[in-house]
Amino acid sequence: MKNLISILDLSLEEIDELIATANDIIENPVKYSEKCHGKKMATLFFEPSTRTRLSFEAAMYELGGNVLGFSEANSSSASKGESVADTVKVVSYYADIITMRHPKEGAPLVASMNATVPIINAGDGGHNHPTQTLTDLLTIKREMGRFDNLTIGLCGDLKFGRTVHSLVQAMMRYNNVKFVMISPDELKIPEYLKQELIDAGVEFTETTDLEKAMPELDILYMTRVQRERFFNEADYIRLKDSYILTSEKLLAAKADMRVLHPLPRVNEISLDVDDDIRAAYFRQACNGKYIRMALILKLLGVE
């Protein structure tokens, strides 16, 4: 593995290996604190994403490495019209690894074809965001202790949510995983993804009712239902509350169920849920740093 462009670039064994390293980092952080001494990571963020960028930067600093880069296209040569190919050819001379977020879909793949150092896709438009999926996987493993025999509820905007699509593609490779797709009719998962599930013989159901689905879930992956996704205001107002998770709705859930959310949250999980042990989304954000540390080590070939 030289680059991480899509989660499907990783075999199940490679994912297991990354998770094992991340778990070891969590247990023994001191052991890893100088692993990347003298190494530099370039963070090329052609569109802003504070959370993802800080997570990568923190990961590199905790490995003893250094970080250089920019956090918006205006402060880079892209604003002068430089191509992605040229940018990464040049940055390859200055850094040992490149993390890239770009508004255009496929930009990190173009980068990987031109750079001489590893490329990590930190999000390309609405397309891929593999390190979010790795974060979700590490969280599922740490919270549930397994990837198989799980019923996973995906709630909210399943049509446009790229984190949901990647998570489905990553989790459907494990045994006896069932999906419950909970969304308004306007925001159902895309046909191509449904076809992939059918072709692979993976069980899934679709519903508009979060409360009804709740008792059978092992994991509830929440996403935000955005106002601008609706065709009309009346539908939005009618539906918006049905996809808000409250502690009252959680009463029907299993005691060991876990709630995940890629964050940022707006109002789709009410604040009173945060204190529930089942709310795993802040632990999930913390895991994001550790899995990125594991990924940086792997791509740099640091033992």
């Binding site: 191509s83 992605v84 508004p103 879909e105 930009a107 390309d124 397309h127």
Partner: peptide
């Protein structure tokens, strides 16, 4: 034909 694709802006691709 995807306007969000990198092929819509990157030269020489």
């Amino acid at each position: 034909k995807n306007p969000r694709c990198i092929t819509s802006t990157e030269q020489g691709l």
